[in-house]
Write a protein that binds this DNA or RNA. Structure first.
Lengths: 87, 87
DNA sequence: TTGACATATCGAGAAATCCCGATATACAAT
DNA sequence: ATTGTATATCGGGATTTCTCGATATGTCAA
């Protein structure tokens, strides 16, 4: 999922249909689309995304009944760097 | 264990008492010393080390009844780099 | 307010991983 | 040959992770 979210346009249908005007949350993908691509149950995908958000790897914004997730590049890169230097 | 093996001198007793003259395997630590430090059973540690060796993260050499393991920096660094660039 | 939809949470079975004791193997010293 | 020591392998119980269906929560539209 993390890798898919590197290229949302390539891996998911166009997003933002339910995002209100004036809001800026580029690169976010709603749970349903991620779930469909993953082929896992809705509950599984929802909880994975939630975990990754709590871990800081993703950030999420809710618009109405939709929740959009996108990568938090800062923490992802920090983690990658941490691994690379300390492993 | 991987991290301990970054600094064998610091984390383990002096090695090489059973390594024959003329052989060059610096930085290797025998299973028994790793097991003692880990506080896990002998079988567990042995199998972990074996797995890591099969995965390419460690290399091992046997001298008599002793097996010495040390880090394979090349593959470890390659893995780290792979993670950093593709995550 | 009711019904429909998107997502979140809960409880639990299936599968994988962790880790052990018992035993096998390999080598060294007697 | 036999014994002792270091490591490897095997079988299985305990724990954790994975994943699901059922249900709850929140939101929109009629």
């Amino acid at each position: 999922m993390l890798l898919w979210l590197k290229e949302p346009d390539k891996n998911f249908p166009a997003q933002g249909a339910h995002i209100p005007k004036g809001v800026n949350f580029v690169g976010g993908v709603c749970v349903g689309d991620i779930q469909e691509k993953a082929g896992l149950s809705q509950s599984t995908v929802s909880s994975y995304l939630n975990m990754m958000q709590k871990a800081g790897l993703l950030e999420s914004f809710r618009y109405g009944q939709w929740t959009y997730y996108r990568r938090n590049e800062d923490t992802i890169q920090a983690l990658a760097e941490e691994i690379r230097t300390n492993i």
